[in-house]
Design a protein around this nucleic acid. Structure first.
Length: 407
DNA sequence: TCTGGGGTCCTAGGACCC
DNA sequence: TCTGGGGTCCTAGGACCC
C-alpha cells in the first residue's frame, strides 16, 4: 500500500484575517475580535506582537492599546470564507474534511506528483492560491497521517508549510512539548510527564507495549499515528450535530430564582430556535447551573417525542429547576443543551393552543427573530423583570403560555 | 487570568439480568 | 441466608478540542 499524504490547513488568526480580507485598511494593524463577548477570541499577529492574548478583556485592550482595532465577531463572514477555503482545497485533493471553522484535513495522496511537485512545493502552491483568492493566510502541515499533518502545521506560523517527514524538521518536531499534541490536554500531559515523557521525541521513543500499558485508547492511537501508522480517516463532516447548546455567564453571581428562570428560558429559546433553523429536534434536554465556586449541577428533562417547541421545553426545565434548587446558593452561569438531536420530520406540533398551526406560528416567529434579532420576541418568563409590568410577572411565569412580546 | 461558549468522545461504574 | 460470576446496557462526568 502506498504511503498516504495528508494535508492539514490552519487559518492564521483566522477571524482577524477575515476582517482584514474584507477591509484592507486593517492590514498591518493590531486587529482584535471579540467585542461582542467582551473578551478577545481572535487576534492578528500584529496584536500578538503587542502582547495581546486570547481571553483578555476587550475594555482593557481599548484602554491599554489604543492603537488596536477591536471588532465584534462577524461569524457569517467567517463561515462564508471557511466554505470557500474548503472548496478551493477540494480542487487539489481526493477528499476534504472540514475540521473546524478555520481548519481542514485533505487527502492529497499521489497528487503532488501529478503536478510534478514535492509535497512541500505543492503545499506552497495551494497556500498561495488560498491567499490570492481569499486574501486570507493559512499555515499547513503535511504528513503520512492526520496526527503528523496536524503536528507539522504548528511548526511554523504564520504562512508556514512544514512536512513532518522531512529531515530538516526533525529537531524542532521532536522538541515540541508532549502537551502540545492534538488530544493531549492537561491531565494526559501530567500523566506523561510523571513517566518522564516531556517532549514529542520522548513520546515517540517509547515502545508500543509501554504506551499500551499505561495509557488510554486515545493516547495509544495518537502514538501509533505519530509513528506513521494511519488510523484516522479523512471523513466528510457529519451533516447534523449531536447536541446543540446555549450557555452564558452572568456577573455578578446571583442567588435569585428569577434570574435563573430568566436565563434558562432564554437559553431554551435560543436552542429551540437553532434546532428549528436546522430542521432538527431533540427528545432530551439537559440544563445546568454553575455555582459561584465553579461546580456544575446538571439536570435532564425528557419528552415523549422529539421537540423544538419552547412551550414544551421551557415549563419542564423551570419546573425541574424549582424542585431542585436549594435556597441560598449563588450561581454564575446557566446553560441548556439539546441531546440526541435528530431531524425534525417527525415532530408533532402540540403547541399551547391546539387550534394554532404551530408550523405557521413558528415560521412567523422565526422570521421576526431573523429579521429583528434574538430579543425581538420572547417568552414572558425570559424577560427581564424591569422590561415589563412587574406585578404580573410571577403569575405569568408558568401558568400562562404567553407568546408574543414584541419590542 | 480568579477562569467564555459551543461542541465531541471516552470510560468507570451502576442497574439489571441470567 | 448470604453466596458467585459474568454479561449487557446506560449514564454522568471527565477530558479534550477550537
Amino acid at each position: 500500500m502506498t504511503q498516504r499524504c495528508i494535508l492539514h490547513l490552519d487559518g492564521d488568526g483566522f477571524f482577524a484575517g477575515c476582517e482584514m480580507a474584507v477591509n484592507p485598511k486593517l492590514k498591518g494593524r493590531a486587529v482584535v475580535v471579540g467585542a461582542e463577548k467582551g473578551i478577545v477570541t481572535a487576534l492578528s499577529y500584529e496584536a500578538k506582537a503587542l502582547g495581546i492574548a486570547r481571553g483578555m478583556a476587550t475594555f482593557q485592550i481599548r484602554k491599554d492599546f489604543p492603537e488596536a482595532v477591536v471588532l465584534p465577531g462577524n461569524y457569517r463572514l467567517y463561515r462564508e470564507l471557511s466554505k470557500r477555503m474548503n472548496a478551493i482545497v477540494s480542487r487539489y485533493a481526493h477528499r476534504v474534511e472540514p475540521y473546524s471553522i478555520d481548519e481542514c484535513f485533505a487527502d492529497i495522496t499521489g497528487i503532488p506528483e501529478r503536478f510534478g511537485k514535492t509535497p512541500e512545493s505543492f503545499g506552497r502552491m495551494v497556500q498561495k492560491v488560498l491567499l490570492s483568492e481569499l486574501n486570507v493566510s493559512f499555515s499547513m502541515g503535511i504528513g503520512s497521517t492526520k496526527v503528523r499533518a496536524k503536528t507539522a502545521s504548528k511548526l511554523e506560523k504564520p504562512f508556514g508549510c512544514s512536512v513532518f517527514e522531512l529531515r530538516k524538521n526533525q529537531n524542532s518536531l521532536m522538541a515540541l512539548p508532549v502537551g502540545s499534541l492534538w488530544g493531549i490536554g492537561k491531565s494526559s500531559a501530567m500523566a506523561l510527564n510523571a513517566l518522564g515523557i516531556w517532549t514529542v521525541g520522548d513520546f515517540m521513543a517509547k515502545e508500543r507495549f509501554f504506551i499500551n500499558n499505561f495509557f488510554n485508547k486515545q493516547v495509544c492511537e495518537l502514538w501509533s499515528e505519530l509513528k506513521g501508522e494511519s488510523l484516522y480517516d479523512i471523513s466528510a463532516k457529519r451533516e447534523s450535530p449531536q447536541s446543540v447548546s446555549h450557555t452564558r455567564t452572568f456577573t455578578p453571581a446571583s442567588g435569585s430564582l428569577k434570574t435563573l428562570c430568566r436565563e434558562l428560558t432564554c437559553h431554551a429559546e435560543a436552542v429551540a430556535f437553532r434546532l428549528r433553523m436546522q430542521g432538527l429536534a431533540a427528545q432530551e434536554y439537559s440544563f445546568f447551573v454553575k455555582t459561584k465556586s465553579f461546580e456544575y449541577k446538571t439536570f435532564k428533562v425528557s419528552f415523549v417525542s422529539p421537540t423544538h417547541d419552547d412551550h414544551e421545553i421551557v415549563p419542564e426545565i423551570l419546573r425541574c429547576l424549582r424542585n431542585a434548587i436549594v435556597p441560598g446558593g449563588m450561581y454564575r452561569a446557566t446553560g441548556v443543551t439539546a441531546l440526541g438531536v435528530v431531524p425534525s420530520i417527525a415532530v408533532s406540533g402540540n403547541m399551547f393552543a391546539r387550534e394554532v398551526n404551530s408550523k405557521a406560528l413558528y415560521g412567523a416567529f422565526d422570521r421576526i427573530l431573523r429579521r429583528y434579532g434574538s430579543s425581538a420576541i420572547m417568552l414572558a418568563s425570559g424577560m427581564h423583570p424591569q422590561r415589563k409590568a412587574k406585578k404580573k410577572f410571577e403569575e405569568l411565569h408558568f401558568s400562562i403560555p404567553c407568546i408574543g412580546y414584541v419590542d
